[in-house]
């Protein structure tokens, strides 16, 4: 059995729970028992209270989807929890008062992912708040040293979440299609 994980992070109401829900094979859980894969090597299967979803692939491989709890943005354990993850899906809620502040906060919190180009950004709720625009986000990212995909997405729409993940996979390896 091979286990891999993808992390979903971002501020309150950005759609992390919803995004995981829209692509997970199981009903996502926010509680403990089922998240035990990540913590299997811990004593008594104690767990981390995060959103959790799962994608089962043909064969034995499984992709675990973890969402950081948004209201605990000051938690300092994220990088630790996301250690070893394939990549990071950062969702930014365009309707919050300071989306760029949120953006930089999370970029900083996940520096390791950013530097390795293991990140994609989905800006949500643009249907309710048009500004700032996607190009404004790109301007904010100009100094990050990597070209990060930034898409306008609605976390409730599977296709949107899917294309974001696809971009993540191609960023990791443009040669996937053989």
């Amino acid at each position: 059995m091979s286990d891999y994980k993808i992390i979903f992070s971002g501020p309150v109401g950005a759609g992390k729970t919803t995004a995981i829900q829209s692509i997970s094979d199981i009903l996502p859980v926010t509680t403990d028992e089922q998240a035990s894969d990540m913590t299997r090597n811990l004593k008594n299967g104690t767990t981390v209270a995060m959103d959790y979803g799962l994608i089962k692939l043909p064969g034995t491989e499984r992709i675990h989807l973890y969402g950081t709890p948004g209201q605990e943005r000051f938690d300092f354990m994220w990088e630790i929890l996301s250690n070893g993850g394939i990549g990071l899906v950062l969702l930014i809620n365009n309707q919050r008062p300071d989306p760029f502040g949120d953006l930089h906060f999370f970029l900083n919190a996940f520096q390791a992912f950013i530097k390795q180009g293991k990140v994609v950004i989905g800006v949500t709720r643009m249907d309710q708040a048009e500004m700032p625009r996607i190009e404004d986000y790109h301007l904010q990212l100009e100094n990050s040293g990597v070209k990060i995909p930034v898409f306008d997405i609605d976390a409730r729409i599977r296709k949107d979440v899917s294309i974001l993940l696809e971009a993540l996979l191609y960023s990791l390896d443009p040669g996937i299609e053989e």
Partner: peptide, 19 residues
């Protein structure tokens, strides 16, 4: 040259799954 990621096979499977 495009370096092959360690998990290319896995990524392909996931892609197919998503699409």
């Amino acid at each position: 040259v495009i370096e092959q990621a360690k998990h290319r096979g896995l990524f392909s499977k996931l892609l197919n799954r998503l699409r």
